[in-house]
Design a protein around this nucleic acid. Structure first.
Length: 421
DNA sequence: TCTGGGGTCCTAGGACCC
DNA sequence: TCTGGGGTCCTAGGACCC
């Protein structure tokens, strides 16, 4: 039995999308750059470039030669997009993820605006994750640019509290991709996540249990992964601003005000307690597609356009399911109205499906249950209660997740007990 | 000048069953 | 007459995260 101390790392790529774009457009290094907004692609950029500079034939190999002056600027943007990510130079101006582009344009009009290219980000995502698992195999995927890594049993994972291994991973990723990341190493995921934020970009932070009061307690409650704007507001209302103040609260008092489960969790989190394992593999629960329209659409007046989008969303979800090998039986829709209020409706089928036609038909039934007076800005289609297509096809009993399996043994045992009904 | 897209998990009430 | 409890599934909404 190992006596190794639990050491968990959280790794966060620095300004991931923007950094990937800077690999293609090194001429933008150091300048404020914002990614997001458009459905525009590289081809579009090249086509406009060709018109502006016809003396040369431009291809995707020439991206590094595009003059800085040519790039679209935030101030010229019109539409309802949001920022997906911003370079550190752009963040100096107060622009950041999820901010509307029109608002960002007022803060930093001169920032270059690049379209998102998920293919490219996924490519680098796979690459850096492969480098990590070559070094430390127990990795939990937390999205394109984030992972948890269990350092505990990795050779060298205990040295300097994890710093040596963190440095090795950073170096390996940088040498292969040219990208930097920040790593926090701590006794658990909760603290590792906070640690990785302490020294950004390209930093390493080591947190031990005894660092709790000095490194964690001074931080705002909002830094705890799981405390969002609502919970933070409620805590502030009670005069609780820092994690230290939260830790000073009686657990019973927290449970009274936040509910039993949340209250207990808040108390644990504030004291740095977190037993969640690093999960190597997980199955998807739902898949969905949604789209925000260029302009708000009316159910009657824009019926044809809406219908076409609706069908397309169903087809996209169906092909996602088929490509990844899943079927589901809860079909749902999501609507967002012009006042930004959202509603959902869903319906559970008898049988699992990944069929676009059946999804379309069921989603259509759901749609009929929503009053459609207001104009719509978003429409989405979701398929939930997923299982692997293979398992559903085999006719294997698809046991509901929490259902107790009734083995013949159990039934016999029950039958000998006095019946209450 | 408003606010993307793709997810997970939790809660809470009602139906239904034993 | 009135008196239970527990479990699961379904549905709707909401908080939160990347």
């Amino acid at each position: 039995m190992s006596t190794a101390v639990r050491r968990i790392a959280h790794l966060d790529m620095d300004a991931f999308y923007a950094s990937v774009e800077l690999l293609r457009y090194p001429q933008l290094k150091g300048l404020p750059v914002v990614i997001g907004g458009g459905r525009r692609a590289i081809d579009d950029l090249l086509a406009r470039l060709q018109v502006a500079h016809p003396e040369r034939h431009w291809t995707s190999d020439d991206l590094a030669d595009i003059p800085v002056d040519f790039f679209p600027r935030l101030k010229d943007y019109v539409g309802r997009g949001v920022i997906t990510t911003a370079t550190y130079a752009a963040r100096q101006f107060g622009v950041g993820s999820a901010m509307g582009l029109m608002k960002a344009a007022r803060l930093c009009p001169q920032a270059c605006l690049l379209p998102v290219d998920f293919e490219q980000y996924r490519h680098y995502s796979r690459r850096f994750k492969a480098l990590i698992t070559d070094i430390a195999p127990l990795m939990e995927d937390r999205g394109v640019d984030e992972v948890y890594i269990d350092f505990t049993e990795v050779p060298g994972g205990q040295r300097e509290g994890g710093r040596v291994l963190a440095r090795l991973i950073q170096k390996s990723i940088f040498e292969d991709t040219g990208l930097t990341c920040s790593i926090g190493v701590a006794p658990n995921k909760l603290l590792a996540k906070m640690a990785s934020e302490l020294n950004k970009p390209n930093g390493i932070s080591i947190v031990h249990e005894h660092d709790l009061s000095s490194k964690i307690w001074p931080l705002a409650c909002r830094k705890i992964n799981g405390i969002g704007p609502k919970a933070d507001e409620k805590l502030k209302h009670h005069g609780i601003e820092t994690i230290g103040q939260l830790a000073a609260c009686e657990p019973a008092w927290l449970q009274q005000h936040f509910g039993g489960k949340t209250g207990a969790w808040l108390a644990d989190a504030a004291h740095g307690r977190d037993e969640r394992p690093v999960v190597i593999h997980s199955e998807p629960v739902s898949m969905s597609r949604e789209t925000t329209f260029e302009r708000d659409l009316h159910a009657v007046r824009d019926k044809a356009e809406l219908g076409a989008i609706f069908t397309e969303l169903c087809q996209s979800v169906a092909s996602d399911l088929q490509r990844k090998g899943y079927v589901g039986k809860t079909i749902g829709i999501k609507l967002r109205f012009d006042d930004f209020k959202s509603v959902t409706r869903d319906q559970t089928l008898e049988h699992y499906t990944a069929d676009a036609g059946l999804i379309r038909q069921t989603a259509g039934q759901c749609l009929k249950r929503v009053p459609l007076q207001r104009r719509l800005r978003l429409l989405g289609v979701r398929v939930g209660s997923l299982v692997r297509a293979q398992d559903a096809a085999n006719g294997a009993p698809i046991a509901p997740k929490k259902a107790v399996q009734r083995t013949p043994d159990a039934i016999d045992t029950v039958a000998t007990e006095p019946q209450l009904f």
